[in-house]
Simulated scan of single mutants.
Amino acid sequence: MARRSWVEQIMGLPVSVLARGDGAGSGDAEAAVREVFAELSEVDRVFSPYKPDSAVSRLARGEVSWDGVDAAVRDVAARCVAARELTGGLFDAEVPGGGWDPSGLVKGWAVERAGDCLRKVDGVDWCLNAGGDVLVLCPSGEPFTVGIQDPRDPGRVVTSVAQTGGAVATSGTAARGAHLYDPRTGGPAASRWLSISVSGPSLEYADVLATAAFVAADGWPEVIEVLPGYPGLGVLADGTLFATAGWGG
Results as ranks from 00 to 15, higher is better:
19 A>F: 05
151 P>A: 11
127 C>K: 11
14 P>C: 07
231 P>T: 09
156 R>K: 04
97 G>E: 09
124 V>H: 01
35 E>I: 04
38 A>H: 15
244 T>P: 03
163 Q>I: 14
128 L>N: 05
186 G>I: 12
68 G>W: 05
96 P>N: 01
144 F>Y: 09
77 A>H: 10
99 G>M: 12
181 Y>Q: 03
104 G>T: 14
201 P>Q: 11
34 R>E: 06
173 T>V: 08
28 D>Q: 03
44 D>E: 13
87 T>E: 06
196 I>K: 06
235 V>N: 07
35 E>M: 14
90 L>Y: 04
99 G>S: 08
158 V>C: 11
177 G>H: 15
68 G>H: 04
182 D>Y: 13
182 D>G: 10
150 D>W: 00
26 S>D: 02
8 E>S: 13
229 G>D: 01
160 S>P: 06
120 K>F: 04
223 V>C: 13
152 R>Q: 08
39 E>K: 15
183 P>E: 05
48 S>M: 04
45 R>T: 06
141 G>D: 03
234 G>W: 14
19 A>D: 06
142 E>M: 07
189 A>N: 03
83 A>F: 03
210 A>G: 08
148 I>M: 13
172 G>M: 03
18 L>F: 10
156 R>N: 02
58 R>A: 00
232 G>I: 14
187 G>T: 07
61 R>Q: 00
127 C>N: 10
55 A>Y: 01
182 D>N: 12
31 A>M: 03
61 R>F: 00
158 V>Q: 00
160 S>Y: 05
141 G>V: 07
136 V>F: 09
145 T>L: 11
101 D>M: 14
9 Q>G: 03
162 A>V: 02
208 V>E: 09
50 Y>Q: 07
203 L>E: 15
239 G>Q: 09
153 D>Y: 00
247 W>T: 04
214 F>M: 05
166 G>Q: 11
13 L>I: 01
206 A>N: 12
199 S>V: 11
71 A>M: 02
40 L>H: 10
143 P>I: 07
9 Q>F: 08
247 W>I: 08
56 V>P: 08
45 R>K: 02
17 V>N: 00
128 L>D: 00
83 A>Y: 01
29 A>L: 04
8 E>D: 14
207 D>N: 11
171 S>G: 07
197 S>I: 09
246 G>D: 07
125 D>C: 14
58 R>C: 03
116 D>H: 12
43 V>P: 00
237 A>Q: 08
170 T>D: 15
113 R>K: 08
208 V>I: 15
53 D>H: 11
19 A>C: 10
136 V>Y: 12
147 G>I: 05
57 S>E: 03
122 D>Y: 02
41 S>T: 05
135 L>E: 02
37 F>S: 13
